[in-house]
Amino acid sequence: MKCSKCQSDCTYPQRSDGRCPTCKHRFAFEPRTGDIISDAGFQSALDAVSSFGSVRFLPDHVYYELARRRKASGVPRTVMFAFSGVAVVAAIVATPLLLLGAATFAGIGAMLKPRPTLNVERSTFDTMWRRWIAINGQPKGLIVRREAAGTPYRHSDVQHYSFDRAVICDRPETVDLLLANNFHFENNCAVLAVTGYPEHAFSLVREMLKNNPRLSVYALHDATPEGCGLAHRLASDERWFRGSARVVEVGMRPAHARKFKGVWTAASGTVDKRYVTDDERMWLEKYRCELAAIRPEQVIKRLFTAITTEATLEQASTYVESGGDYWVDSYSFSKDSQASDGGDDSFG
């Protein structure tokens, strides 16, 4: 196993004290005793979510990265085909002994079939995360909120201005991802969570948005029933942008989430039909998928493309009307996802 600090390799007996024999750095994990990943694997996940230290990220991104890796390193498809093949042959030959064997094989095969939901418990990850930080310190690029909230504006004239555009998110963590990576600065863009985050700037930023009659608004969200209704809510709620701005849907919808099988979470219950198609509703009645399942670099890149490409609005051809005084563009974050830019599972 490789040491994440000095990169030297060692055998299990050589690290019996839990330390690298070369540099004496303590290992955080030991796969031989049940940990799901090695230190080098964990470091590799950190490198992936931070794009080798150039993009800031949250612990959630690491969690999904580990889950994705665990899924990817699961049972190869060829092995599963072998199990299925044995079952089929047994069914054809149909001897009692073979049938028994086939049933066993089929059962094992079913157990090994990749499940659509997360295969790493969150509590397991949280324990690993704490252990990693205790030994290695906070990883470079980790987004950590300051205990004292950000210093609010200090000049009275600032409130008279506005932003060219606004990204409204369904959860504070997505706001953190964008602000910590300077998305607001690079794109003259307000970033808020519909829940009222960040508290110290929320009211004033929302007021400032009213100073721009040509504001473009982008709704960024998880694949959840609430997320899929976000653009609708922003466009119809008078406290937000009813009648005052074009709202563009750029969040993760079920069609996109489908490409992230393995990092969904299970769900149940009925879904409001007004904001989703029948197909989306059927998926949302069983599953959810968070935006954090996508690597930060890709989220920011695709959001940037969505807000800067003229084609965005040209493609936004599906208008949802209700009451006639607002409308929603339905260009989706997911529509142009392709294998070439990381689509399908590799999109993450």
Binding site: R145, A149, T151, V158, D176, A201, V205
Partner: peptide
């Protein structure tokens, strides 16, 4: 834009 958000992160 930067001024509005201040220093939110460590």
């Amino acid at each position: 834009a930067a001024e509005m958000y201040g220093h939110l992160y460590e």
